[in-house]
């Protein structure tokens, strides 16, 4: 078995998701290579070389791969995929954008959002927003897989793999990058945070989300939101936790003023410990919460912040 992992990049650095995808690759077993493709990505390649279980890093450093646009990335993967039995990427917006192009061009199916490896050809993945878990077997010669990072613990960085340049340069006359607006924050990434504090419609307005800041600061937490809070215009969509937003599984998830719609639960129910704070004691969120506190969040949040 030989496995190629497409590395996630975050502003030119290696994204945290890659260590989880390498863990999935190690679970399949075999020779694990990581492809780092982008522009000015030597540091990311060096970081990838340290990931446990990686035997080689292949770096494709060229302007055509900047921002990892789907068309050149798909073409590059097609060029490289002949050497591999599996190609894996995280189920990030980049992985989801790029990998199906590879699968289609190689005339194979893709398995999306894999959460467990049963064997080299059999995997588990959630369907129907996680309300069912499917076990699927692929008989395709090349397995193309996106990995849900919450299904695999990140590998550590004790390795020292060789970094090798990829000479393949593809053309791209079809798409071009215009701009990117990333939310600026000193907090950890929502997808990789050990603690997440989320607010829902019960927060009342966007201004009140500031009540979560102090708690998040003390806990080193990322701040999330329910779809209801996003739809109400309180906060931007990239904070959304749920079926249609981010899937998270932190050590501690604190849901504040969130009723617990199925679509929200789909995004956080694999968290290790769930705390719910809600004034409605019948709210469905309490059915999944390890610890529930019924009361007025405008009183509870300042108290919690001062006592943490």
């Amino acid at each position: 078995m030989s496995i190629l992992v497409l590395a996630d990049l975050h502003e030119g650095q290696l994204g945290g998701a890659t260590a989880h995808v390498v863990a999935a690759a190690n679970a399949i077993g075999g020779d694990v290579h990581v492809l780092v493709a982008g522009e000015g990505v030597q540091a990311a390649a060096d970081a990838a070389a340290k990931l446990d279980g990686v035997s080689k890093v292949r770096i494709a450093d060229n302007a055509v791969y900047a921002h990892q646009l789907a068309e050149p990335m798909g073409a590059l993967l097609v060029e490289l995929s002949g050497d591999y039995t599996h190609v894996l990427a995280s189920a990030s917006t980049t992985g989801k954008n790029v990998l199906p192009r590879l699968a289609a061009l190689k005339d194979v199916s893709q398995l999306s959002d894999v959460i467990a490896v049963e064997s080299a050809d059999t995997f588990k993945r959630p369907i129907y927003a996680g309300n069912a878990i499917a076990t699927v077997k692929s008989d395709d010669a090349l397995k193309v897989i996106t990995v849900r990072t919450t299904g695999f613990d990140a590998v550590e960085s004790n390795g020292n793999a060789a970094v090798e340049s990829v000479s393949v340069v593809v053309e791209n006359g079809q798409s071009s990058f215009v701009k990117q607006e990333l939310a600026q924050s000193d907090r950890p990434e929502l997808g990789g945070a050990k603690v997440v504090v989320s607010g829902g419609r019960g927060m009342g307005n966007g201004e009140n989300f500031k009540l979560l800041d102090g708690i998040a600061d003390k806990l080193g937490a990322a701040i999330g939101a329910s779809r209801a809070a996003v739809d109400a215009g309180f906060v931007p969509n990239d904070m959304q936790v749920g079926q249609t937003g981010k899937i998270v599984a932190p050590e501690l998830y604190i849901a504040v003023g969130i009723s617990g719609a199925i679509q929200h639960l789909a995004g956080m129910k694999d968290s290790k410990v769930i705390v719910a704070i809600n004034k409605d004691e019948e709210a469905p969120i309490f059915q999944v919460a390890d610890y529930g506190l019924v009361g007025d969040l405008f009183e509870i949040l300042p108290e919690l912040e001062s006592k943490l």
Binding site: H67, L69, T94, F177, V178, K179, Q180, L182, A183
Partner: peptide, 8 residues
Amino acid sequence: IDGGLQTI
């Protein structure tokens, strides 16, 4: 995209 918006 993860973390924000991208225009192409």
